[in-house]
Design a protein around this nucleic acid. Structure first.
Length: 664
RNA sequence: GGGCGAGUAGCUCAAUUGGAUAGAGCAACGGCCUUCUAAGCCGUAGGUUACAGGUUCGAUCCCUGUCUCGCCUACCA
């Protein structure tokens, strides 16, 4: 209904401008007045016309408002057009119409969208436990998936697994050479970790790898020069063995990376994050994705063989926006194939992205890897199940990858464009975000040594290599413990299991909201004090608000559905009070908020939207005591308002992957 | 050197993409629990939007220059 009104208004403005002044606008800008009492829409169009018509904005606005009054009579749902400020036209709607439409239909109204979208997120190197930075990635990515689906898109979720990279090699070197374990001993260790279960923290396999990875990184830079040279050689020898596959070292690497991957999936499942497909680098290598891509790149002339300068003997690609003088060597070119014939990370990524868009002419093998309650997560393999879903061949893609990777991401887009796939390049979104870092105080609290020069900085970058960071499961544990003690105090009559469930829901609400409330371009300087806060602009605040609304229905002996029904049957729709109208109007703007979040690729706007609704409801809740309301007609309206708030909060929280607990 | 991002209240962040009086949360101060849950509500205080120009009806937002901070810029992945 709200969007219908918006459309009607825009069309009316177009008609009037055409008829009166022969003006056609590309788009009719529509804003929200700063105060509720001013109406539902604000049109700044008179400012735009001032120059063309050589008249003051206010004069134009007055004339235009008059004409609009003629176009959109009160019986069509528009009650007033007022000139305001320096030349705005404020438009009021019939509130009752809008409220009754909302009471009748609570669905998100979007038509099914044919385009298939592929979202890649998480993509943690499978060589150590996940940390806070990975949480930001996964939570942003998962929320993007949820809102795209809410908007009617069909979305596949992929988590790219770099199981043949140097990071995995480092842990392999650590186990085999630094700790002197045999492949059998590593196998036994993984088995004993499995037996302990993911709930164990000490002795959890990805935690062991975390510590080992830091130790190995340290080991590379210790010792005599000769030792360092040998260790480095060992590192690359191991890497190349893993890349080639089909050796004991490669099997050890596969065993380790698969075990860590499995734990990552469990960690993310705690947060309600699931994947459809796990493409692995090992298959990109062994299924010859790169060989095909290499041919295509050479044919299209995107890659050329450099014969001079520092990149002599390499296949290189000109960078986006590079200023290259004809006849001169482009020293700044991006190396894709090294002089020794091996392909770089960007090269493999180009092949992978050709596959994503269905432009490679090759596909993975697929086999089942992980079962969620409601669906299966598949993994790539050489030859898999005969019957399997097909991933890839997407109409549009989103890569949730932090801003440090914007350069390689741009290289991939550049390659696609250079190969003539301009359409694919246009539908390639690097969903970029800034990193999560730790405040110096947080680092010190965790027991890390903080260098003198770092103490005055706003934040310090986390580093897996240094073992410097906050592990995802530790953070979730800490949040759950904090919420649990609060729940125990507030809900003593509930069972142990109920209290634990509530505590976990609140912990997840706090964490997910915390990661979503910052806009993507802002570095999160992580601190336990902020992350463990449950007051003010936090997930628990919004959850608590929904629980308050729910309690009204628990105690009043009616349901939200019945309250809506009663509202429709009675003529209780007249809503004069702003405290009530704010809630109905925000509910009416659900689709607008969703569209804005998708178009700007900014989930933070939704987090804010939900917080504002929560504030509006708490304000209403404080002003009006619903259960003791004596006027029956009034009580119906108040109950329906609580019902619409509860429904809206539940939907918005769900889009962010946050549940509404039974009680708080 | 080049590219990207950031600089807004004591702190952490917003600002409908150029609009009305720049808003929230935390921290501070002052009120509100016999009432549907105080993880809440109301109020006070807090601003030269890094700086200097420019564009126009209008600039936190766009342009130019300067300063500060972070990240990226390897034949690492």
């Amino acid at each position: 209904m709200y969007r219908e009104r918006q459309k009607q208004l825009a069309e009316a403005v177009r008609r009037v401008l055409k008829a009166e002044w022969e003006i056609e606008l590309a788009e009719v800008v529509m804003e929200q007045p700063p105060e509720l009492s001013m109406g539902e829409f604000a049109l700044p169009v008179a400012f735009e016309l001032a120059r063309k018509l050589r008249k003051a904005p206010r004069v134009i606005a007055t004339e235009l408002a008059e004409k609009l009054r003629g176009e959109l009579r009160p019986e069509s749902g528009f009650t007033s057009f007022e000139t305001a400020g320096a030349g705005y036209i404020n438009v009021r709607l019939e509130r009752e119409d809008l409220a009754l439409a909302l009471a009748a239909d609570g669905a998100t109204n979007f038509s099914k969208n044919a385009a298939r979208i592929l979202v890649e997120h998480t993509s943690i190197n499978p060589n150590k436990a996940a940390h806070v930075g990975h949480l930001r990635n996964a939570i942003l990515g998962d929320t993007l998936v949820r809102i795209l689906r809410a908007a009617g898109y069909s979305v596949d979720v992929q988590n790219y697994i770099d199981n043949t990279g140097v990071q995995v090699a480092d842990v392999v070197v650590g186990f085999l050479h630094l700790d002197g374990k045999s492949p059998q001993q590593i196998e036994a260790l993984i088995a004993s970790c499995d037996a302990l279960g993911a709930e164990a923290r000490e002795g959890r396999f990805d935690y062991i790898c975390w510590e080992l990875y830091a130790r190995v990184s340290q080991w590379y830079s210790e010792g005599t020069e000769e030792q360092q040279r040998q260790r480095k050689a060992l590192r690359y020898e191991t890497l190349h063995e893993i890349e080639r596959g089909d050796s004991e070292v490669a099997r050890v690497a596969d065993r380790i990376s698969t075990a860590v991957l499995h734990l990552h999936l469990l960690t993310m499942q705690r947060l309600g994050i699931e994947y459809d497909f796990l493409p692995r680098e090992s298959e990109i290598l062994h299924l010859k994705f790169w060989d095909r891509a290499f041919e295509l790149l050479k044919q299209s002339g995107v890659l050329y063989h450099e014969s001079q300068g520092k990149n002599a003997g390499c296949w290189v690609m000109t960078r986006p926006d590079a200023k290259v003088t004809k006849g001169e060597t482009d020293e700044d070119a991006k190396v894709i194939v090294r002089s020794n014939g091996t392909v770089t990370y960007v090269g493999k990524d180009i092949a992978y992205h050709l596959w994503k868009f269905g432009l490679l002419g090759a596909d993975f093998g697929y086999r089942k890897f992980f079962e969620y309650p409601n669906h299966t997560c598949w993994i790539s393999c050489m030859e898999g199940a005969v019957e399997h879903p097909h991933f890839g061949g997407a109409g549009a893609i989103y890569n949730v990858i932090d801003s440090r990777q914007s350069d390689p991401q741009a290289n991939v887009v550049q390659a696609l464009r250079g190969m003539g796939h301009a359409e694919a390049a246009d539908r390639y979104t690097h969903f970029s975000y800034e990193m999560v870092a730790l405040t110096p105080r947080c680092a010190q609290d965790l027991g890390y040594h903080v260098a003198e020069e770092d103490r005055s900085r706003a934040y310090i970058e986390v580093s897996g290599r240094k073992g410097f960071g906050v592990k995802a499961d530790d953070l979730l544990d800490k949040l759950t413990a904090a919420t649990r003690s609060e729940v125990d105090a507030r809900q003593p009559e509930r069972t142990e299991a109920e209290r634990q469930m509530i505590a976990e829901q609140i912990a997840i609400g706090a964490l997910r909201y915390f990661m979503l409330k910052f806009t993507r371009g802002s570095v999160i300087a992580f601190d336990f004090k902020d992350a463990l806060s449950f007051e003010g602009e936090t997930g628990p605040y919004v959850q608590y608000t929904a629980v308050r609304a729910r309690n009204i229905f628990r105690k009043s002996g009616t349901t939200p559905e019945q309250a809506m029904e009663a509202m429709r049957k009675s003529a209780a729709g007249a809503i004069q009070e702003d405290a009530l109208w704010a809630i109905w109007l925000r509910a009416a703007r659900r689709e607008q908020a969703l569209t804005a979040a998708i178009q700007s690729a900014e989930p933070a706007t939704l987090a804010r939207h939900s917080f504002q609704l929560a504030q509006e409801f708490n304000n209403f809740y404080h002003k009006h005591h619903i259960m003791t309301e004596e006027d029956p007609a009034r009580k119906i309206l108040l109950l329906a308002t609580a019902a619409v708030a509860l429904r809206e909060l539940t939907v918005l929280l769900h889009w962010m992957g946050i549940d509404v607990p039974e009680a708080m």
